[in-house]
């Protein structure tokens, strides 16, 4: 039997094309009087703000207000040198990396089995579970700060990476579970049943049958969780008591003070902060593209 890997190619399989695959190309080279211009509009709508970010990061603070809609200014790399000269930057980047990696790992550790469990059992409990997950998605993050602070204070997790990782995980597990569940549902039940008849334990079936097939979903969810925990700011600022522990997102907040916003600094830091994210995106481009549909199905 064929194992259906949820990819575009796999999706093409059931249509039973007789000819062997020179993979049918998605030819759409006809003249598009509407789509073409619309695509340019879309490009502008997203490129202009990014251009603005980059331009602002190259300005002198005194030029930010006076040259808002013109391109006439003397570019300077001052904001970048200032940001890069900040010794805290690399510690912050390390912290962001630790927190995002830890959160991703812990979230997956908890959410994968949950997504699997909720995918395989059809009962009232599943319905309630799904509903509760959405409600948890909805709770304002600010409302979690005070209770979690009390827990972490009692458990000695304040000012620890672990505390922030746990808080971020609690924030992202509902999202990750909701997203993972359909991936497991899409694995044919017969496969699992067969393994169980062969005598494989539930754990083994899960580990060696289910997980490998759902790996696309796991990778996609992991990527999204990583992106989200990379940018998380509120918990980081509240649960770290030493500024030396702040991740990048809190460093960004530092550019905005009661006494003014350092526009070029903010934009330069935003650009620098996004570089790791862009690298991650390039690597996971295909996964994101193909994986997301599945997760989103239901």
């Amino acid at each position: 039997m064929s194992i259906m890997i949820p990819t575009r190619d796999a999706a093409a399989v059931p249509s039973a094309t007789p000819h062997p695959r020179p993979r049918p190309r998605r030819l759409r080279r006809r003249f598009e009087p509407i789509a073409g211009p619309l695509r340019v509009v879309l490009l502008l709508v997203y490129a202009i703000p990014i251009l603005f970010i980059v331009l602002t990061s190259l300005k002198d603070p005194s030029d930010v207000i006076s040259s808002q809609s013109s391109f006439l200014f003397t570019p300077t790399l001052e904001a970048y040198t200032a940001v890069l000269a900040n010794q805290g930057l690399f510690i912050a980047m390390q912290q962001s990396l630790t927190i995002a990696t830890g959160t991703t790992a812990l979230t997956l550790l908890v959410a994968i089995p949950a997504g699997y469990g909720l995918a395989r059992v059809d009962s009232r409990i599943t319905t309630i579970g799904l509903g509760l997950l959405i409600v948890l998605q909805m709770v304002p993050q600010t409302a979690n700060v005070i209770p979690l602070y009390q827990i972490f204070g009692a458990w000695g997790l304040l000012d620890q990476n672990l505390g922030v990782i746990v808080a971020d995980t609690a924030l992202l597990v509902p999202f990750a579970t909701l997203l993972l569940r359909p991936f497991f549902r899409s694995v044919p039940e017969a496969l699992e049943e067969a393994a169980s008849i062969d005598g494989a334990s539930t754990m083994r079936t899960f580990w060696s049958v289910m997980l490998p097939i759902a790996r696309n979903g796991v990778a996609t969810t992991g990527t999204l969780v990583f992106l989200m925990s990379w940018g998380e700011f509120l918990y980081a600022v509240n649960f770290f008591l030493s500024p030396g522990n702040y991740p990048l997102s809190a460093l960004l907040a530092q550019q905005v003070s009661a006494f003014g916003i350092n526009w070029p600094g903010l934009m330069a830091l935003a650009v620098i902060t996004s570089v790791p994210i862009l690298i991650l995106f390039v690597f996971t481009y295909r996964l994101l593209r193909e994986g997301l549909t599945l997760g989103a199905v239901k």
Binding site: A111, P113, G117, L118, R120, V121, N144, P147, A170
Partner: peptide, 27 residues
């Protein structure tokens, strides 16, 4: 056997109970 699979959701359940439902209840 399938029903038992619900046990897989247990770690998440416990985790969320402590770190998400407790704040929700406090709210």
């Amino acid at each position: 056997a399938k029903r038992k699979r619900l046990a897989f959701a247990l770690p998440a359940g416990i985790f969320l109970l402590v770190f998400s439902f407790f704040p929700l209840a406090q709210l």
